[in-house]
Design a protein around this nucleic acid. Sequence first.
DNA 1: CCTGAGCGG
Length: 95
Amino acid sequence: MNIYVGNLSYQLSSEELREAFEQFGEVSSANVVMDKLTGRSKGFGFVEMPDRASGEEAIKQLDGAPLKGRNVRVNEARPRENQGGFPPRRAPRRA
DNA sequence: CCTGAGCGG
């Protein structure tokens, strides 16, 4: 399950996010989105969990929870249209 | 620059 985690501290790292979600279930991979220009955090990240139930549980618990002194915004991530997909063309599949 | 929107490669 792909989980979007936003509104996090710039001081937070991916492994800290990993541990935060591992409290509620198994985490396959955690990834805080870093800026390619500055090299620092963009303020949001993504956590991937193999179990859907643990993902929902982690969301219910970590959504709005104070992480690094900041309340994080946790929700299920959007299914990206080109995840290793063939068409490099951006197709507006947004309602 | 010590920041502040929110969905990455």
